[in-house]
Design a protein around this nucleic acid. Sequence first.
RNA 1: CGGGGCGUGGCUCAGCCUGGUGUAGAGCGCCGCGUUCGGGACGCGGAGGUCGCGGGUUCAAAUCCCGCCGCCCCGACCA
Length: 476
Amino acid sequence: MAKGLTPRSEDFSAWYNEVVQQAELADHAPVRGCMVIRPYGYALWENVRSALDQRFRDTGHENAYFPLFIPQSFLAKEAEHVEGFSPELAVVTIGGGKELEEPLIVRPTSETVIGHMYAKWIQSYRDLPVLINQWANVVRWELRPRLFLRTTEFLWQEGHTAHATREEAEEEARRMLEVYADFAENEAAVPVIKGRKSEGEKFPGAIISYTIEAMMGDGRALQSATSHDLGQNFARAFDITYQDAEGGVQHCWTTSWGMSTRFIGAIVMVHGDDNGLIMPPRLAPCQVVIVPIWRNDDEKALVMAAASNARDVLGEFRVKLDDRDQLTPGFKFNHWELKGVPLRVEIGPRDVRNQQVVLARRDRPGREGKTDVPLGGLRDGVGKMLGAIQGALFERAVAFREEHTTQPESYDELRAAVARGFALAWWCDSADCEARVKADTTATVRCIPQAQPEGQGTCAICGRAATGKAVFARGY
RNA sequence: CGGGGCGUGGCUCAGCCUGGUGUAGAGCGCCGCGUUCGGGACGCGGAGGUCGCGGGUUCAAAUCCCGCCGCCCCGACCA
Protein backbone atom coordinates (compact mmCIF):
# COMPACT_ATOMS: atom_id res chain seq x y z
CA MET A 1 0.00 0.00 0.00
CA ALA A 2 1.10 3.53 -0.72
CA LYS A 3 2.67 5.49 2.08
CA GLY A 4 0.52 8.25 3.41
CA LEU A 5 -2.53 7.28 1.39
CA THR A 6 -5.65 6.36 3.36
CA PRO A 7 -7.00 2.97 2.17
CA ARG A 8 -10.18 3.24 0.16
CA SER A 9 -12.02 0.86 2.44
CA GLU A 10 -11.19 2.94 5.48
CA ASP A 11 -12.33 6.36 4.22
CA PHE A 12 -13.13 6.67 0.54
CA SER A 13 -13.55 10.41 0.72
CA ALA A 14 -10.17 10.93 2.37
CA TRP A 15 -8.58 8.59 -0.16
CA TYR A 16 -10.06 10.61 -3.00
CA ASN A 17 -8.82 13.94 -1.69
CA GLU A 18 -5.37 12.59 -1.00
CA VAL A 19 -4.93 10.87 -4.32
CA VAL A 20 -6.10 13.90 -6.30
CA GLN A 21 -3.61 16.11 -4.53
CA GLN A 22 -0.70 13.72 -4.16
CA ALA A 23 -0.87 12.61 -7.77
CA GLU A 24 -0.82 16.31 -8.66
CA LEU A 25 -4.09 16.35 -10.58
CA ALA A 26 -5.35 19.44 -8.75
CA ASP A 27 -4.90 21.59 -5.70
CA HIS A 28 -7.12 23.91 -3.68
CA ALA A 29 -7.03 27.53 -4.85
CA PRO A 30 -7.03 30.49 -2.44
CA VAL A 31 -10.74 31.09 -3.14
CA ARG A 32 -13.00 28.60 -1.43
CA GLY A 33 -14.45 26.06 -3.81
CA CYS A 34 -12.04 26.87 -6.59
CA MET A 35 -9.26 24.56 -7.72
CA VAL A 36 -6.09 24.73 -9.73
CA ILE A 37 -5.93 21.98 -12.30
CA ARG A 38 -2.26 21.08 -12.35
CA PRO A 39 -0.42 20.05 -15.52
CA TYR A 40 -0.94 16.32 -14.96
CA GLY A 41 -4.65 16.77 -14.35
CA TYR A 42 -4.96 19.19 -17.22
CA ALA A 43 -3.23 16.77 -19.57
CA LEU A 44 -5.88 14.22 -18.66
CA TRP A 45 -8.61 16.78 -19.31
CA GLU A 46 -7.02 17.62 -22.67
CA ASN A 47 -7.19 13.97 -23.64
CA VAL A 48 -10.83 13.79 -22.55
CA ARG A 49 -11.46 16.91 -24.57
CA SER A 50 -9.84 15.66 -27.77
CA ALA A 51 -11.68 12.35 -27.66
CA LEU A 52 -15.02 14.09 -27.13
CA ASP A 53 -14.32 16.87 -29.59
CA GLN A 54 -13.60 14.36 -32.34
CA ARG A 55 -16.93 12.68 -31.66
CA PHE A 56 -18.75 16.01 -31.78
CA ARG A 57 -17.19 16.80 -35.14
CA ASP A 58 -18.03 13.34 -36.40
CA THR A 59 -21.67 13.98 -35.55
CA GLY A 60 -21.70 17.26 -37.45
CA HIS A 61 -21.08 19.84 -34.74
CA GLU A 62 -18.92 22.95 -34.86
CA ASN A 63 -17.20 24.76 -32.04
CA ALA A 64 -17.87 28.40 -31.18
CA TYR A 65 -17.45 30.62 -28.17
CA PHE A 66 -20.06 32.66 -26.32
CA PRO A 67 -19.36 35.24 -23.60
CA LEU A 68 -18.80 34.67 -19.91
CA PHE A 69 -21.21 37.44 -18.88
CA ILE A 70 -24.94 37.19 -19.28
CA PRO A 71 -27.42 40.04 -18.63
CA GLN A 72 -29.32 39.21 -15.47
CA SER A 73 -32.65 39.65 -17.23
CA PHE A 74 -31.85 36.75 -19.58
CA LEU A 75 -31.98 34.21 -16.80
CA ALA A 76 -35.46 35.33 -15.82
CA LYS A 77 -36.92 34.62 -19.24
CA GLU A 78 -37.36 30.92 -18.65
CA ALA A 79 -39.27 30.35 -15.42
CA GLU A 80 -37.89 26.96 -14.35
CA HIS A 81 -34.43 27.92 -15.46
CA VAL A 82 -34.20 31.02 -13.26
CA GLU A 83 -35.71 29.16 -10.35
CA GLY A 84 -33.21 26.35 -10.70
CA PHE A 85 -30.11 28.46 -11.02
CA SER A 86 -30.80 31.59 -8.95
CA PRO A 87 -29.41 30.24 -5.68
CA GLU A 88 -26.05 29.45 -7.17
CA LEU A 89 -25.27 32.49 -9.31
CA ALA A 90 -22.26 34.76 -9.12
CA VAL A 91 -23.35 38.28 -10.03
CA VAL A 92 -21.18 41.20 -11.14
CA THR A 93 -22.60 44.54 -10.05
CA ILE A 94 -19.59 46.81 -10.54
CA GLY A 95 -17.63 47.28 -13.75
CA GLY A 96 -14.79 49.73 -14.29
CA GLY A 97 -15.44 51.20 -10.87
CA LYS A 98 -19.05 52.08 -11.63
CA GLU A 99 -22.22 50.34 -10.58
CA LEU A 100 -23.74 48.62 -13.60
CA GLU A 101 -27.21 49.54 -14.80
CA GLU A 102 -27.99 45.87 -15.12
CA PRO A 103 -26.04 43.30 -13.12
CA LEU A 104 -24.21 40.63 -15.09
CA ILE A 105 -24.41 36.94 -14.34
CA VAL A 106 -21.28 34.88 -14.64
CA ARG A 107 -22.66 32.06 -16.76
CA PRO A 108 -23.75 28.94 -14.88
CA THR A 109 -24.65 27.49 -18.31
CA SER A 110 -25.30 29.21 -21.61
CA GLU A 111 -28.78 28.29 -22.85
CA THR A 112 -29.91 31.89 -22.43
CA VAL A 113 -27.18 33.80 -24.28
CA ILE A 114 -27.03 31.18 -26.93
CA GLY A 115 -30.80 31.25 -27.28
CA HIS A 116 -30.60 35.01 -27.69
CA MET A 117 -28.08 34.67 -30.49
CA TYR A 118 -29.90 31.82 -32.16
CA ALA A 119 -32.97 34.03 -32.35
CA LYS A 120 -30.90 36.47 -34.41
CA TRP A 121 -29.29 33.87 -36.62
CA ILE A 122 -32.19 31.60 -37.42
CA GLN A 123 -34.74 32.82 -39.96
CA SER A 124 -35.63 29.90 -42.17
CA TYR A 125 -36.02 26.15 -42.01
CA ARG A 126 -33.02 26.23 -44.38
CA ASP A 127 -30.90 27.54 -41.45
CA LEU A 128 -31.65 24.42 -39.43
CA PRO A 129 -30.35 22.46 -37.74
CA VAL A 130 -27.83 24.63 -35.89
CA LEU A 131 -25.29 22.33 -34.26
CA ILE A 132 -22.83 24.20 -32.04
CA ASN A 133 -20.63 23.19 -29.16
CA GLN A 134 -18.49 25.34 -26.92
CA TRP A 135 -15.63 24.55 -24.56
CA ALA A 136 -15.86 26.92 -21.66
CA ASN A 137 -15.71 27.59 -17.95
CA VAL A 138 -18.85 28.12 -15.91
CA VAL A 139 -19.50 29.22 -12.34
CA ARG A 140 -21.98 27.82 -9.86
CA TRP A 141 -21.83 28.90 -6.24
CA GLU A 142 -22.18 25.43 -4.79
CA LEU A 143 -22.62 24.90 -1.09
CA ARG A 144 -20.19 22.08 -0.62
CA PRO A 145 -17.33 21.96 -3.09
CA ARG A 146 -15.10 18.96 -3.73
CA LEU A 147 -12.12 18.78 -6.08
CA PHE A 148 -13.36 18.05 -9.61
CA LEU A 149 -16.74 16.74 -8.40
CA ARG A 150 -18.23 20.07 -7.44
CA THR A 151 -16.10 23.18 -7.81
CA THR A 152 -17.28 26.77 -7.92
CA GLU A 153 -15.76 27.20 -11.35
CA PHE A 154 -15.46 24.23 -13.65
CA LEU A 155 -14.55 23.45 -17.23
CA TRP A 156 -16.91 21.70 -19.56
CA GLN A 157 -18.32 21.56 -23.00
CA GLU A 158 -21.89 22.53 -23.69
CA GLY A 159 -23.57 21.64 -26.94
CA HIS A 160 -26.56 23.70 -28.05
CA THR A 161 -28.63 22.75 -31.04
CA ALA A 162 -31.77 24.03 -32.69
CA HIS A 163 -34.06 21.96 -34.89
CA ALA A 164 -37.16 22.27 -36.99
CA THR A 165 -39.08 19.45 -35.39
CA ARG A 166 -39.61 17.81 -32.06
CA GLU A 167 -38.47 14.48 -33.48
CA GLU A 168 -35.18 15.89 -34.72
CA ALA A 169 -34.43 17.52 -31.39
CA GLU A 170 -35.32 14.37 -29.53
CA GLU A 171 -33.11 12.35 -31.86
CA GLU A 172 -30.23 14.77 -31.29
CA ALA A 173 -30.55 14.59 -27.50
CA ARG A 174 -30.48 10.80 -27.67
CA ARG A 175 -27.63 10.75 -30.17
CA MET A 176 -25.45 12.83 -27.87
CA LEU A 177 -26.25 10.56 -24.95
CA GLU A 178 -24.92 7.71 -27.08
CA VAL A 179 -21.81 9.74 -27.85
CA TYR A 180 -21.17 10.28 -24.15
CA ALA A 181 -21.76 6.64 -23.32
CA ASP A 182 -19.44 5.57 -26.12
CA PHE A 183 -16.77 7.94 -24.88
CA ALA A 184 -17.13 6.92 -21.24
CA GLU A 185 -16.98 3.21 -21.93
CA ASN A 186 -14.51 3.02 -24.80
CA GLU A 187 -12.11 5.81 -23.89
CA ALA A 188 -12.36 6.04 -20.11
CA ALA A 189 -13.30 2.41 -19.45
CA VAL A 190 -16.10 3.71 -17.22
CA PRO A 191 -19.27 1.64 -17.65
CA VAL A 192 -22.41 3.73 -17.59
CA ILE A 193 -26.15 3.28 -17.43
CA LYS A 194 -28.03 5.29 -20.02
CA GLY A 195 -31.34 6.61 -18.92
CA ARG A 196 -33.70 9.43 -18.28
CA LYS A 197 -33.87 11.67 -15.22
CA SER A 198 -37.01 11.72 -13.10
CA GLU A 199 -39.23 14.80 -13.23
CA GLY A 200 -37.73 16.03 -10.00
CA GLU A 201 -34.14 15.58 -11.09
CA LYS A 202 -34.28 16.92 -14.62
CA PHE A 203 -32.50 20.07 -15.82
CA PRO A 204 -34.35 23.34 -15.07
CA GLY A 205 -36.12 24.18 -18.32
CA ALA A 206 -35.84 20.78 -19.99
CA ILE A 207 -38.76 18.57 -20.95
CA ILE A 208 -36.59 15.46 -20.79
CA SER A 209 -33.10 15.08 -19.34
CA TYR A 210 -31.05 12.08 -20.36
CA THR A 211 -28.09 11.01 -18.28
CA ILE A 212 -25.33 8.50 -18.05
CA GLU A 213 -24.75 7.25 -14.51
CA ALA A 214 -21.60 5.51 -13.37
CA MET A 215 -20.89 3.66 -10.14
CA MET A 216 -17.91 4.89 -8.17
CA GLY A 217 -15.61 2.65 -6.10
CA ASP A 218 -17.72 3.23 -2.99
CA GLY A 219 -20.98 2.23 -4.64
CA ARG A 220 -22.25 5.76 -5.07
CA ALA A 221 -23.47 7.11 -8.40
CA LEU A 222 -22.00 9.93 -10.43
CA GLN A 223 -23.96 11.68 -13.14
CA SER A 224 -21.26 11.66 -15.76
CA ALA A 225 -22.92 13.60 -18.57
CA THR A 226 -26.36 14.85 -19.46
CA SER A 227 -28.28 15.58 -22.62
CA HIS A 228 -31.46 17.60 -22.53
CA ASP A 229 -34.42 17.82 -24.81
CA LEU A 230 -35.49 21.39 -24.15
CA GLY A 231 -38.63 21.16 -26.26
CA GLN A 232 -39.71 24.67 -27.20
CA ASN A 233 -39.20 26.13 -23.74
CA PHE A 234 -36.13 28.18 -24.57
CA ALA A 235 -37.25 28.86 -28.12
CA ARG A 236 -40.38 30.49 -26.71
CA ALA A 237 -38.49 32.37 -24.03
CA PHE A 238 -35.97 33.75 -26.52
CA ASP A 239 -38.16 33.88 -29.55
CA ILE A 240 -36.15 31.46 -31.64
CA THR A 241 -38.38 31.07 -34.67
CA TYR A 242 -38.11 30.05 -38.28
CA GLN A 243 -40.29 30.19 -41.34
CA ASP A 244 -41.22 26.78 -42.68
CA ALA A 245 -41.60 25.70 -46.30
CA GLU A 246 -45.29 26.53 -46.20
CA GLY A 247 -44.61 30.08 -45.07
CA GLY A 248 -45.74 29.64 -41.48
CA VAL A 249 -43.67 30.83 -38.48
CA GLN A 250 -42.63 28.11 -36.01
CA HIS A 251 -40.69 27.95 -32.78
CA CYS A 252 -37.52 25.86 -32.92
CA TRP A 253 -36.93 22.75 -30.85
CA THR A 254 -33.65 22.91 -28.96
CA THR A 255 -31.28 20.65 -27.05
CA SER A 256 -28.30 21.08 -24.80
CA TRP A 257 -25.77 18.57 -23.53
CA GLY A 258 -22.65 18.66 -21.44
CA MET A 259 -19.78 16.83 -19.84
CA SER A 260 -17.46 18.51 -17.37
CA THR A 261 -14.20 18.20 -15.46
CA ARG A 262 -16.31 16.29 -12.99
CA PHE A 263 -15.69 13.29 -15.18
CA ILE A 264 -12.04 13.39 -14.08
CA GLY A 265 -13.41 12.54 -10.65
CA ALA A 266 -15.19 9.54 -12.15
CA ILE A 267 -11.97 8.24 -13.69
CA VAL A 268 -10.25 8.59 -10.33
CA MET A 269 -13.03 6.95 -8.32
CA VAL A 270 -13.83 4.12 -10.72
CA HIS A 271 -10.31 2.85 -11.41
CA GLY A 272 -8.09 3.95 -8.53
CA ASP A 273 -6.81 1.59 -5.85
CA ASP A 274 -4.96 1.84 -2.54
CA ASN A 275 -1.74 2.60 -4.39
CA GLY A 276 -3.22 5.59 -6.17
CA LEU A 277 -4.65 6.39 -9.57
CA ILE A 278 -5.05 3.99 -12.44
CA MET A 279 -5.33 5.82 -15.74
CA PRO A 280 -7.23 4.18 -18.57
CA PRO A 281 -4.56 3.79 -21.27
CA ARG A 282 -6.48 5.61 -23.98
CA LEU A 283 -6.71 8.78 -21.88
CA ALA A 284 -3.54 8.46 -19.78
CA PRO A 285 -1.31 11.56 -20.01
CA CYS A 286 1.57 9.13 -19.80
CA GLN A 287 0.94 5.58 -21.03
CA VAL A 288 4.35 4.07 -20.44
CA VAL A 289 7.10 5.04 -18.04
CA ILE A 290 10.56 3.61 -18.42
CA VAL A 291 12.51 3.10 -15.21
CA PRO A 292 16.20 2.34 -15.67
CA ILE A 293 18.05 0.41 -12.99
CA TRP A 294 21.80 0.37 -12.41
CA ARG A 295 24.45 -0.09 -9.70
CA ASN A 296 27.47 1.75 -11.04
CA ASP A 297 28.58 4.07 -13.81
CA ASP A 298 29.35 1.26 -16.25
CA GLU A 299 25.92 -0.24 -15.79
CA LYS A 300 24.35 3.18 -15.94
CA ALA A 301 25.85 3.86 -19.38
CA LEU A 302 24.72 0.48 -20.63
CA VAL A 303 21.23 0.69 -19.19
CA MET A 304 20.62 4.29 -20.21
CA ALA A 305 21.54 3.48 -23.78
CA ALA A 306 19.04 0.63 -23.77
CA ALA A 307 16.43 2.78 -22.05
CA SER A 308 16.61 5.65 -24.48
CA ASN A 309 16.54 3.14 -27.30
CA ALA A 310 13.36 1.67 -25.81
CA ARG A 311 11.89 5.15 -25.60
CA ASP A 312 12.54 5.66 -29.31
CA VAL A 313 11.06 2.28 -30.17
CA LEU A 314 7.92 3.26 -28.22
CA GLY A 315 7.67 6.63 -29.94
CA GLU A 316 4.07 6.07 -31.02
CA PHE A 317 2.95 5.93 -27.38
CA ARG A 318 2.91 8.64 -24.72
CA VAL A 319 6.12 7.55 -23.07
CA LYS A 320 8.40 8.98 -20.40
CA LEU A 321 11.91 7.95 -19.44
CA ASP A 322 12.49 8.59 -15.75
CA ASP A 323 16.21 9.28 -15.77
CA ARG A 324 16.40 11.06 -12.43
CA ASP A 325 19.55 9.60 -10.92
CA GLN A 326 19.09 10.67 -7.31
CA LEU A 327 16.05 8.43 -6.82
CA THR A 328 15.97 4.68 -6.34
CA PRO A 329 13.96 2.42 -8.64
CA GLY A 330 11.64 1.46 -5.80
CA PHE A 331 10.76 5.08 -5.20
CA LYS A 332 10.04 5.59 -8.89
CA PHE A 333 7.83 2.49 -9.04
CA ASN A 334 5.67 3.83 -6.27
CA HIS A 335 5.69 7.34 -7.65
CA TRP A 336 4.37 6.32 -11.06
CA GLU A 337 1.89 3.93 -9.54
CA LEU A 338 0.46 6.79 -7.50
CA LYS A 339 0.16 8.72 -10.74
CA GLY A 340 -1.60 5.78 -12.36
CA VAL A 341 0.68 5.24 -15.37
CA PRO A 342 -0.80 2.05 -16.88
CA LEU A 343 2.42 0.39 -17.94
CA ARG A 344 5.98 0.45 -16.61
CA VAL A 345 9.05 -0.74 -18.44
CA GLU A 346 11.91 -1.77 -16.18
CA ILE A 347 15.35 -2.04 -17.70
CA GLY A 348 18.35 -3.21 -15.65
CA PRO A 349 21.73 -4.78 -16.43
CA ARG A 350 20.18 -8.24 -16.37
CA ASP A 351 17.65 -7.19 -19.03
CA VAL A 352 20.31 -5.62 -21.20
CA ARG A 353 22.29 -8.89 -21.05
CA ASN A 354 19.18 -10.88 -21.97
CA GLN A 355 18.04 -8.46 -24.67
CA GLN A 356 14.72 -7.98 -22.91
CA VAL A 357 12.76 -5.67 -20.61
CA VAL A 358 10.30 -6.21 -17.78
CA LEU A 359 6.76 -4.92 -18.31
CA ALA A 360 4.72 -4.19 -15.19
CA ARG A 361 0.96 -3.61 -15.39
CA ARG A 362 -0.48 -0.96 -13.08
CA ASP A 363 -3.80 -2.81 -12.78
CA ARG A 364 -2.09 -5.92 -11.36
CA PRO A 365 0.10 -4.91 -8.43
CA GLY A 366 3.37 -6.63 -7.57
CA ARG A 367 5.10 -9.55 -9.23
CA GLU A 368 1.91 -10.91 -10.70
CA GLY A 369 1.71 -7.98 -13.10
CA LYS A 370 5.27 -8.35 -14.38
CA THR A 371 6.34 -10.13 -17.53
CA ASP A 372 9.62 -10.38 -19.42
CA VAL A 373 9.42 -9.17 -23.01
CA PRO A 374 12.20 -9.61 -25.59
CA LEU A 375 13.38 -6.31 -27.06
CA GLY A 376 12.28 -7.32 -30.53
CA GLY A 377 8.67 -7.63 -29.37
CA LEU A 378 8.62 -4.49 -27.23
CA ARG A 379 6.55 -2.26 -29.45
CA ASP A 380 3.89 -4.83 -30.20
CA GLY A 381 3.93 -6.09 -26.63
CA VAL A 382 3.32 -2.64 -25.21
CA GLY A 383 0.53 -1.96 -27.69
CA LYS A 384 -1.19 -5.22 -26.87
CA MET A 385 -0.79 -4.81 -23.16
CA LEU A 386 -2.17 -1.28 -23.14
CA GLY A 387 -5.19 -2.65 -24.95
CA ALA A 388 -5.47 -5.48 -22.45
CA ILE A 389 -5.32 -3.05 -19.52
CA GLN A 390 -7.97 -0.85 -21.10
CA GLY A 391 -10.23 -3.89 -21.45
CA ALA A 392 -9.45 -5.25 -18.00
CA LEU A 393 -10.27 -1.94 -16.33
CA PHE A 394 -13.62 -1.85 -18.05
CA GLU A 395 -14.42 -5.45 -17.18
CA ARG A 396 -13.43 -4.91 -13.59
CA ALA A 397 -15.63 -1.83 -13.31
CA VAL A 398 -18.56 -3.71 -14.85
CA ALA A 399 -18.06 -6.62 -12.44
CA PHE A 400 -17.89 -4.24 -9.49
CA ARG A 401 -21.10 -2.57 -10.56
CA GLU A 402 -22.86 -5.91 -10.96
CA GLU A 403 -21.69 -7.01 -7.51
CA HIS A 404 -23.06 -3.84 -6.00
CA THR A 405 -26.36 -3.77 -7.82
CA THR A 406 -29.41 -5.46 -6.36
CA GLN A 407 -33.00 -5.75 -7.49
CA PRO A 408 -35.05 -5.19 -4.36
CA GLU A 409 -38.69 -6.25 -4.19
CA SER A 410 -39.56 -4.62 -0.90
CA TYR A 411 -38.88 -1.24 0.64
CA ASP A 412 -36.62 -2.76 3.28
CA GLU A 413 -34.58 -4.42 0.58
CA LEU A 414 -34.37 -1.15 -1.31
CA ARG A 415 -33.09 0.68 1.74
CA ALA A 416 -30.45 -1.97 2.30
CA ALA A 417 -29.49 -1.94 -1.39
CA VAL A 418 -28.79 1.80 -1.65
CA ALA A 419 -26.54 1.59 1.37
CA ARG A 420 -24.05 -0.45 -0.62
CA GLY A 421 -24.67 0.41 -4.27
CA PHE A 422 -27.36 0.62 -6.91
CA ALA A 423 -30.91 -0.55 -6.41
CA LEU A 424 -32.68 -1.40 -9.63
CA ALA A 425 -36.27 -1.34 -8.49
CA TRP A 426 -39.79 -1.15 -9.82
CA TRP A 427 -41.11 2.36 -9.35
CA CYS A 428 -44.49 3.98 -9.81
CA ASP A 429 -42.94 7.21 -11.15
CA SER A 430 -44.40 9.29 -8.34
CA ALA A 431 -42.53 12.16 -6.72
CA ASP A 432 -43.87 11.07 -3.34
CA CYS A 433 -42.09 7.75 -3.44
CA GLU A 434 -38.93 9.43 -4.70
CA ALA A 435 -39.05 11.93 -1.84
CA ARG A 436 -39.66 9.20 0.69
CA VAL A 437 -36.57 7.29 -0.39
CA LYS A 438 -34.53 10.45 -0.29
CA ALA A 439 -35.71 11.35 3.18
CA ASP A 440 -35.06 7.86 4.53
CA THR A 441 -31.76 7.06 2.82
CA THR A 442 -30.43 10.20 1.03
CA ALA A 443 -30.55 8.11 -2.15
CA THR A 444 -32.30 9.49 -5.23
CA VAL A 445 -33.60 8.20 -8.51
CA ARG A 446 -30.44 8.36 -10.60
CA CYS A 447 -32.18 7.43 -13.80
CA ILE A 448 -34.85 5.40 -15.45
CA PRO A 449 -32.68 3.15 -17.62
CA GLN A 450 -33.29 2.90 -21.34
CA ALA A 451 -32.88 -0.83 -21.10
CA GLN A 452 -36.04 -1.93 -19.31
CA PRO A 453 -36.78 -5.50 -18.26
CA GLU A 454 -39.63 -7.50 -19.64
CA GLY A 455 -42.79 -7.75 -17.64
CA GLN A 456 -44.36 -5.63 -14.97
CA GLY A 457 -44.04 -5.16 -11.26
CA THR A 458 -45.21 -3.15 -8.33
CA CYS A 459 -43.46 -0.14 -6.89
CA ALA A 460 -40.91 -1.26 -4.28
CA ILE A 461 -41.83 1.75 -2.18
CA CYS A 462 -45.61 2.05 -2.24
CA GLY A 463 -46.73 -1.23 -3.80
CA ARG A 464 -48.82 0.36 -6.54
CA ALA A 465 -48.40 -0.63 -10.19
CA ALA A 466 -44.97 0.39 -11.44
CA THR A 467 -44.29 2.22 -14.70
CA GLY A 468 -40.81 0.74 -15.01
CA LYS A 469 -37.57 0.05 -13.22
CA ALA A 470 -35.41 2.88 -11.90
CA VAL A 471 -31.90 3.05 -10.48
CA PHE A 472 -31.90 4.33 -6.92
CA ALA A 473 -28.56 5.23 -5.38
CA ARG A 474 -26.74 7.74 -3.30
CA GLY A 475 -25.09 10.21 -5.61
CA TYR A 476 -22.24 12.66 -5.74
C1' C B 1 -27.29 27.37 6.64
C1' G B 2 -27.01 23.07 10.54
C1' G B 3 -23.31 19.49 12.89
C1' G B 4 -17.96 18.24 13.72
C1' G B 5 -12.72 19.38 13.38
C1' C B 6 -8.45 22.36 12.50
C1' G B 7 -5.18 26.95 11.89
C1' U B 8 2.66 26.32 14.65
C1' G B 9 8.89 26.05 8.54
C1' G B 10 6.85 23.48 1.85
C1' C B 11 3.71 19.02 4.00
C1' U B 12 1.96 16.10 8.41
C1' C B 13 1.95 17.18 13.28
C1' A B 14 3.94 17.55 18.79
C1' G B 15 4.18 21.52 22.39
C1' C B 16 -1.11 24.59 24.81
C1' C B 17 -4.54 21.47 29.75
C1' U B 18 -0.91 23.38 34.48
C1' G B 19 2.21 30.77 31.07
C1' G B 20 8.79 31.08 32.37
C1' U B 21 13.27 24.80 30.69
C1' G B 22 17.13 29.83 28.10
C1' U B 23 18.23 30.43 20.23
C1' A B 24 10.03 26.90 19.40
C1' G B 25 10.66 20.91 18.21
C1' A B 26 10.06 16.19 15.26
C1' G B 27 9.22 13.28 10.82
C1' C B 28 8.90 13.91 5.71
C1' G B 29 10.36 17.24 1.88
C1' C B 30 14.22 20.86 0.19
C1' C B 31 19.89 22.44 -0.71
C1' G B 32 25.38 20.62 -0.68
C1' C B 33 29.00 16.50 -0.57
C1' G B 34 29.85 11.30 -0.54
C1' U B 35 28.30 6.22 -0.60
C1' U B 36 23.90 3.77 -2.78
C1' C B 37 20.21 2.00 -6.68
C1' G B 38 15.83 -5.20 -9.37
C1' G B 39 9.79 -2.32 -4.69
C1' G B 40 9.43 4.12 -1.10
C1' A B 41 18.37 3.95 0.54
C1' C B 42 22.04 5.96 4.07
C1' G B 43 25.79 9.23 6.43
C1' C B 44 27.57 14.11 7.35
C1' G B 45 26.65 19.28 6.81
C1' G B 46 22.84 23.13 5.85
C1' A B 47 18.53 26.47 4.62
C1' G B 48 13.71 27.43 6.27
C1' G B 49 8.77 29.63 11.41
C1' U B 50 6.34 37.77 13.09
C1' C B 51 3.03 30.00 16.21
C1' G B 52 -4.18 32.57 11.19
C1' C B 53 -5.49 38.07 12.39
C1' G B 54 -6.78 41.92 16.12
C1' G B 55 -7.40 43.17 21.07
C1' G B 56 -6.89 41.99 26.37
C1' U B 57 -4.71 39.76 31.13
C1' U B 58 0.47 39.38 32.97
C1' C B 59 6.94 41.11 35.01
C1' A B 60 6.42 37.29 31.01
C1' A B 61 1.65 34.51 25.97
C1' A B 62 2.21 29.43 20.68
C1' U B 63 0.10 28.43 25.72
C1' C B 64 -5.07 32.06 29.47
C1' C B 65 -9.60 35.48 28.00
C1' C B 66 -12.63 38.17 24.13
C1' G B 67 -13.58 39.19 19.04
C1' C B 68 -12.77 38.25 13.96
C1' C B 69 -11.09 35.55 9.62
C1' G B 70 -10.00 31.24 6.94
C1' C B 71 -9.88 26.10 5.70
C1' C B 72 -11.28 20.89 5.87
C1' C B 73 -14.95 16.93 6.86
C1' C B 74 -20.42 15.30 7.37
C1' G B 75 -25.66 16.96 5.76
C1' A B 76 -29.21 20.11 2.61
C1' C B 77 -28.00 21.93 -3.19
C1' C B 78 -25.61 20.27 -7.60
C1' A B 79 -22.40 18.76 -13.53
